[in-house]
Design a protein around this nucleic acid. Structure first.
Lengths: 294, 294
DNA sequence: GTGAAAGCGCTAACAA
DNA sequence: TTGTTAGCGCTTTCAC
């Protein structure tokens, strides 16, 4: 076909309003050009930013995004994965709900199409793209120590969530008092409760390192109620750098994940040639705000 | 086919791991069993709850959700709509970015498939499912008046956003001083600026009615800075009942939209028989918290 | 360089 | 009730 004819065909297609039908294309090519995303819990303010990052990364590759939410529930996560698989997504991106509870679902899915675990991980049969939580905790501890805080406590969430688990383990290993750890859930209330408990058990506490911003926000609130000056007496650090960290009074220091970078890497693994499971760790960045700086 | 044979076929399908291929099905049925959703701005904390509600409503009908984000940008919204249309979604749900700027995009889309405007609206060529903002503002004003607040100010966002526009107009019509209106954008900073401006222009102000929780959070913060007691001297009300309203100190009263109900209605219009454009208004509910109750 | 034909997996219509 | 067939829109192959 000559360039001239090609041009005229294009022209005609334009005026007739013709567009390729992706169903026919899918059938023939055995590809849907769509990636499925299963989010652990869309009501957690961290995940919308992840969704957005992935959207952006996919748009660059002309890939569509089919979204599902697991509502923090292993059974619903399994259903969501099945639904997306039945729709023949070319690849699946998942933030697993639970280290042990999601493993089976993810391993089975990985046998059928490329699967990328993003942010959280549960199975070694699938790719993983996340943040280096050990390095993140180390930089938090270093920052605290340079501001004179040497008696931090860690307040985590459910250890079945891989991110909070990794942060907890790194804290246990590198903090001055590695056993000063409390675990509960991602919630404001837990942040408050844990703060009271921490101060009661370890009165010398001068910093609270939280597994996410929700917990950190609760910690800041409880400290205000208790009349403990932040950061003068007790500093607070969160994770994820969500809107919350900027809104809280005082604004909170928080570790930001390089979401777009991670999303691009995840898409590359999802859409690229099939390989053995890769593990990609990106560097986070501690955003310093008033809750750790007088 | 007898029930017995049907059962055996099902059994065989099960053991062989057979699943219908939606591509073939789509091609034959001329339907993708997928609905497209274009969100105005996923980083606005209100929208994730909308997405979740729609997810839930669609899951009940075995429909998939193809998601796109317009990033508050009319051009990106147009692109997103085109992309979803090219993928032959059966219907489109949109929260239009701008009353005038989104009209063309939505009207054109409505000519190709059922389109439901959710929460916000821009075109009368497509269905609309939203909240009755007039009734909402009236109930806010009534509540304020019964708590002795008779000099409210309205702080809105961009009047091109249909929700804030409707709230603003209702306020202008029903508030004691309908001209006490300031408009800016959905942001904390605007909430702060507007609060200062309101108190300067109308020193008798005893309540600030905000177009969303972000603005309201800014108002509460600025009042704290100015040393104005909330709610004793000035009460504050927001919209959307997001996480923010519970987290702010004091917790803020906010109008909650009946999201699931709206999502179910939207899905019914999207998946139901084609009809002339419908306009469905649901009733919101004012959630009263400390920012309006001493 | 161009055109024709096969076949992806599915369902609806029709024939037996 | 059961079995057969056509054709949805696309791309690839192969023949010309």
């Amino acid at each position: 076909m000559t360039a001239d004819v090609a041009q005229r065909v294009r022209q005609a297609a334009e005026t007739l309003g013709y567009e390729v039908n992706p169903a026919g294309r899918s059938l023939r090519l055995r590809s849907t050009e769509t990636v499925g995303l299963v989010i652990a819990d869309i009501t957690n303010p961290f995940f919308p930013s992840l969704v957005k990052a992935l959207e952006d990364a996919l748009a660059g590759q002309e890939l569509g995004l089919l979204l599902a939410d697991a509502s923090n529930n292993v059974a619903r996560e399994r259903d969501a994965v099945q639904r997306l698989l039945a729709r023949r997504v070319d690849a699946l991106v998942v933030t697993p709900v639970s280290r042990s509870g999601s493993r089976g679902t993810i391993s089975e899915a990985a046998a059928r199409c490329p699967v990328v675990q993003l942010d959280r991980r549960a199975s070694s049969d699938a790719h993983y793209v996340g943040m280096d939580n050990v390095a993140a905790i180390q930089s938090v501890l270093l920052h605290l120590s340079t501001t004179g805080k040497r008696r931090p406590v860690f307040v985590g969430s459910d250890p079945q969530i891989s991110t909070t688990w990794e942060r907890q383990r790194a804290f246990a290993r590198f903090a001055p008092f590695g056993d000063r750890v409390l675990v509960g859930e991602f919630s404001l209330d837990w942040g408050r409760t844990a703060t009271r408990e921490a101060l009661a058990r370890w009165p010398s506490t001068d910093a609270i390192v939280c597994a996410d911003d929700l917990i950190a926000a609760g910690a800041v609130e409880e400290l205000a109620v208790l009349g403990v000056p932040v950061p003068a007496t007790v500093a607070v650090v969160g994770f994820d750098d969500t809107l919350l960290s900027r809104l809280q009074t005082p604004p909170m220091s928080s570790v930001r994940q390089p979401l777009l970078e991670m999303a691009v890497a995840a898409v590359a693994l999802a859409a690229g040639p099939v390989t053995s499971p890769r593990k990609l760790l990106h560097r986070g960045q501690l955003v310093v705000r008033a809750s750790t700086l007088s």
